[in-house]
Design a protein around this nucleic acid. Structure first.
Length: 556
RNA sequence: UGGGGUAUAGCCAAGUUGGUAAGGCAGCGGGUUUUGAUCCCGUUAUUCGUUGGUUCGAGUCCAGCUACCCCAGCCA
C-alpha cells in the first residue's frame, strides 16, 4: 500500500541519533520481548513497528525474545502464534528467537554473584509478612529478619532452594537494596521464587524461576541490546534495571526508555482482559474478527501494511492516549481503496423484474475492476430480466434526498442500464416482494439521449447468476469508548457487534476463498472471505464499511 | 511536600540553540464522479493545563498552582 513516505521522528529516535553521534554504539540493537501468555494485539504492533522499524532504519538488528519466566501462565501455542504474527506484520528477527529461559543458567550464576557480594538473601517470610514489612506509598518499609543472614548461609539456602528442598512460597531470594526507598520496586525486590512447574522450554529442569526485573535487564545485556524500549508503567522499574546491571559482572550497559502504550476506543488491549474474553467465550476465539488481536484483525481483513501505517500515524510519545477507531479504519480504507478490486454483492436482496426486457435474453456486460485504475482490468457480468437489488435501495415514495429507486422514478444500475420502477408486489404482511420495472435500452454506457438526468446509481446482481453468500458485519465490541475504565468490562460488551446477512454475490466470486484477498463490494464496504468459507457456502467478513455520508443525512 | 511520569484543536501529533503554532484522523463548505466511495480545492488553535516572572519577543527559560496516569505481585 501507499505508506507515508518520511521516516518517523520520535523522542526515542532522537535519543538514538544523539547516542550514535556521541559514538556510544557501533550499531543499534533492539528487541521485542513478549511474554508468551496470549496472542499479540494492535498494541504489540506499535512496539513491533517501533523496535523492528528502528533496527531497519538504523541498519541495526532486532531480536525476538520470549520473556518466559513465569511457566504457569505461558504456553508453546503462544510462542508459535507470536512468531507467525510478527512475520505476518512484515518483520523478521536476527537468527533464532531468543528466550529468557535460555539464560536461566547465567541468571542463576548472577543471582549467586549477588549473594556472594552480600547483595541478595534468602527470605523465609510469608507473603503476608513481606507485604507488611514493605511499608506503603508514604511510609518506609522495615527490614526483614532474614536481611542480615550471612553470605555463607545464603549461599547454602539458595542452593537448597534450587535443589527443590523448599516448598513454593516457603522462601524467596531477595535483592538487598533499600527498604525505605521511595521506589517501591527497590524495597528488597524478590528476584527468584520457587515454582514446581513444567516449563514449555526448559521442562522440569528448574524449580526456581527468576522474576521479570532481574531477568529483563540481564537478558538485554547478554544480547547486547543498546536501547531497551518498554511501556510507561516500567518507569520506576528502570531504577531496579540499572541497579542489577550495575551490581553484577557484565560489561554491556543497555539503556531502558519508556513510551506510552496504545489505547484504542471501544476495545480493550490488556492481555488479562483479552484472555478473559476468550476464556469466557464472549468471542469465538483469539482470532474472532472483532478482537483487536493481530490474528483477529487479519481475519477481519486488515492488511499488514495498514497496521504498519496505523502505527506510523499514531506516533510514539510518553503521553497517555486514547486513539479513535476512525484512525485505524482510515488506514485500512486507504489501503483497500487503492488495492481492492470492485465487485457487486447484495446483502439483503429484493427481486426486480424488468418487464420490457426479453424473457429468455441474457447479456454479458463489462465491468471495470477499479474505477480509477484501468490496469486492474475488467470482468464480465451478466444481465437479464430478473435481478436482485438491495432492499434499502428502494422506497415506494421518498423525498429528493433519496437518490435511489422510487416508484415512478428512474435510477442507474451500476455498469448497466437506467431502470424505472413501475409497481410493486407485496406479501400478506405488506413487504415488497417484487419490484416491476422497465428499462431504457439506450442507456448502456451512456446517459439518456433526451438529456434527462438520472442522479442515483445502485448496485445489483443478475438473479440467474447470483451466488448465495453469507455476510458477517461487525460493529465495535463494546458500547463505551473506554471499557477498561468500567467496574466490570464484560458488562459493556456490545450484544450487537455481529450481524449476519444472507445475500448474493456476482458469479465471478463463486471461487472466492480465504486466500483471494479483498474486494470492495461497491457502495457497501470492503470484504474478504472468512476461513469458514467453502465453495458450497461462501462467507464474507466486512472489514470496514465505505465512508457513508448518506447515513449522516438519513439519520439527521 | 512519598516517588515516578504527562499536559499543544474532538482524536493522534510536530515543535530540540526563545523570533511569532507542521502534518494526519475526524468535521465543515465547494468541485468532479455510472460507488451518497475515491479524487480535487478550500476551511478548522490570535493560541500551547493554569497563574505569575525573565525578555524587544516564550509553546519553548524560571517559579508557584491544577489535572490526569503509574508504583505497595513470590505477574510482566
Amino acid at each position: 500500500m501507499a505508506e507515508t513516505e518520511n521516516r518517523p521522528t520520535n523522542f526515542i529516535r532522537q535519543i538514538i541519533d544523539k547516542d550514535l553521534a556521541a559514538g556510544l554504539h557501533q550499531q543499534v540493537k533492539t528487541r521485542f520481548p513478549p511474554e508468551p501468555n496470549g496472542y499479540l494485539h494492535i498494541g504489540h504492533a506499535k512496539s513491533i513497528c517501533l523496535n523492528f522499524g528502528i533496527a531497519e532504519d538504523y541498519q541495526g538488528s532486532c531480536n525476538l525474545r520470549f520473556d518466559d519466566t513465569n511457566p504457569e501462565k505461558e504456553d508453546i501455542s503462544f510462542v508459535n502464534s507470536i512468531q507467525k504474527d510478527v512475520r505476518w506484520l512484515g518483520f523478521d528477527w536476527q537468527g533464532e528467537p531468543c528466550y529468557s529461559s535460555g539464560y536461566f543458567d547465567q541468571l542463576h550464576k548472577y543471582a549467586n554473584e549477588l549473594i556472594d557480594k552480600g547483595l541478595a538473601y534468602v527470605d523465609f517470610s510469608t507473603h503476608e509478612q513481606m507485604r507488611e514489612l514493605r511499608g506503603t506509598l508514604t511510609e518506609p518499609g522495615k527490614n526483614s529478619p532474614y536481611r542480615d543472614t550471612d553470605v555463607a548461609t545464603n549461599q547454602r539456602e539458595f542452593a537448597k532452594m534450587t535443589a527443590g528442598e523448599y516448598a513454593e512460597g516457603q522462601c524467596s531470594l531477595r535483592a538487598k537494596i533499600d527498604m525505605s526507598s521511595p521506589f517501591m520496586c527497590m524495597r528488597d525486590p524478590v528476584i527468584y521464587r520457587v515454582r514446581f512447574a513444567h516449563h514449555h522450554q526448559t521442562g522440569d529442569k528448574w524449580c526456581v524461576y527468576p522474576m521479570y526485573d532481574f531477568t529483563h535487564c540481564i537478558s538485554d545485556a547478554l544480547e547486547g541490546i543498546t536501547h531497551s524500549l518498554c511501556t510507561l508503567e516500567f518507569q520506576d522499574n528502570r531504577r531496579l534495571y540499572d541497579w542489577v546491571i550495575n551490581n553484577i559482572s557484565i560489561d554491556c550497559t543497555p539503556r531502558q526508555y519508556e513510551f506510552s502504550r496504545l489505547n484504542l476506543e471501544y476495545t480493550v488491549l490488556s492481555k488479562r482482559r483479552l484472555i478473559q474474553l476468550v476464556d469466557e467465550q464472549h468471542v469465538s476465539g483469539w482470532d474472532d474478527p472483532r478482537m483487536p488481536t493481530i490474528a483477529g484483525l487479519r481475519r477481519r481483513g486488515y492488511t499488514a501494511g495498514s497496521i504498519r501505517e496505523f502505527c506510523k500515524r499514531i506516533g510514539v510519545t510518553k503521553m497517555d492516549n486514547m486513539v479513535e477507531m476512525g484512525m485505524l479504519e482510515a488506514c485500512i480504507r486507504d489501503d483497500l481503496n487503492v488495492n481492492a478490486p470492485r465487485a457487486m454483492a447484495v446483502l439483503d436482496p429484493v427481486k426486480i423484474v424488468i418487464e420490457n426486457y426479453p424473457q429468455d435474453k441474457t447479456e454479458t456486460l463489462q465491468a471495470p475492476n477499479h474505477p480509477n485504475d484501468e490496469s486492474m482490468g475488467a470482468r464480465e457480468i451478466t444481465f437479464s430480466r430478473e435481478i436482485l437489488i438491495e432492499a434499502e435501495d428502494f422506497r415506494e415514495e421518498a423525498n429528493k434526498k433519496f437518490k435511489r429507486l422510487v416508484t415512478g422514478k428512474e435510477v442507474r444500475l451500476r455498469n448497466a442500464y437506467v431502470i424505472k420502477a413501475e409497481r410493486v408486489e407485496k406479501d400478506d404482511e405488506g413487504n415488497v416482494i417484487t419490484i416491476f420495472c422497465t428499462y431504457d435500452d439506450q442507456t448502456l454506457g451512456k446517459d439518456p439521449a433526451d438529456g434527462r438526468k438520472v442522479k442515483g446509481v445502485i448496485h445489483w446482481v443478475d438473479a440467474a447468476a447470483a451466488v448465495p453468500a453469507e455476510f458477517r458485519l461487525y460493529d465495535r465490541l463494546f458500547t463505551v469508548p473506554n471499557p477498561a475504565a468500567e467496574e466490570n468490562f464484560v458488562d459493556v460488551i456490545n450484544a450487537e457487534s455481529l450481524t449476519v446477512k444472507q445475500g448474493v454475490v456476482e458469479r465471478t466470486l463463486s471461487t472466492a476463498s480465504v486466500d483471494s484477498g479483498a474486494w470492495q463490494f461497491e457502495r457497501t464496504g470492503y470484504f474478504c472471505c472468512d476461513k469458514d468459507s467453502t465453495t458450497d457456502k461462501l462467507v464474507f467478513n466486512q472489514t470496514v464499511g465505505l465512508r457513508d455520508t448518506w447515513a449522516k443525512i438519513a439519520n439527521s
